[in-house]
Amino acid sequence: QEELVKAFKALLKEEKFSSQGEIVAALQEQGFDNINQSKVSRMLTKFGAVRTRNAKMEMVYCLPAELGV
């Protein structure tokens, strides 16, 4: 569980995922086979993730800066 949270936060820091499906796929690539869209959705809510525009003006998920991840 701890490893999943770390990987999840690291992915969001990249600010390149525009959908929950993309986050699920990226986590599965890292070996988290039991991850699915509903789990990702709950984690996004739990950590207060928001959708914002990145440098390329794409809408992407990211974590609020005050979490200091």
Rank of each mutant, 00 (worst) to 15 (best):
Q1S: 13
Q1P: 10
Q1W: 14
Q1F: 13
E2A: 13
E2L: 11
E3W: 08
E3S: 13
L4E: 03
V5T: 10
K6N: 12
K6M: 12
A7G: 02
F8D: 00
F8A: 02
K9E: 08
K9A: 08
K9S: 05
K9W: 10
K9I: 15
A10E: 11
A10G: 09
L12C: 04
L12V: 04
K13S: 10
K13P: 01
E14Y: 06
E14I: 06
E15M: 11
K16H: 06
K16L: 07
K16I: 08
K16D: 03
F17T: 03
F17S: 04
F17G: 03
S18I: 08
S19V: 05
E22A: 12
V24D: 01
V24L: 11
A25W: 09
L27T: 00
Q28Y: 08
E29M: 11
Q30S: 07
Q30F: 07
G31T: 01
F32E: 00
F32W: 09
F32C: 01
D33K: 13
D33M: 14
N34P: 03
I35L: 07
I35N: 00
N36I: 04
N36D: 14
K39P: 01
K39E: 14
K39D: 15
V40Q: 00
V40I: 08
S41R: 13
S41H: 11
R42W: 13
R42E: 15
M43R: 00
K46V: 12
K46S: 12
G48T: 02
G48V: 03
V50L: 07
V50G: 08
R51Q: 10
R51C: 15
T52S: 11
N54I: 02
A55W: 04
K56H: 11
K56D: 13
M57P: 03
E58H: 05
M59D: 07
Y61G: 02
Y61R: 02
Y61Q: 02
Y61D: 01
Y61W: 15
C62W: 07
C62E: 04
C62D: 03
L63V: 04
L63P: 03
L63E: 03
P64F: 04
P64C: 11
A65M: 12
E66V: 06
G68Y: 03
V69H: 11
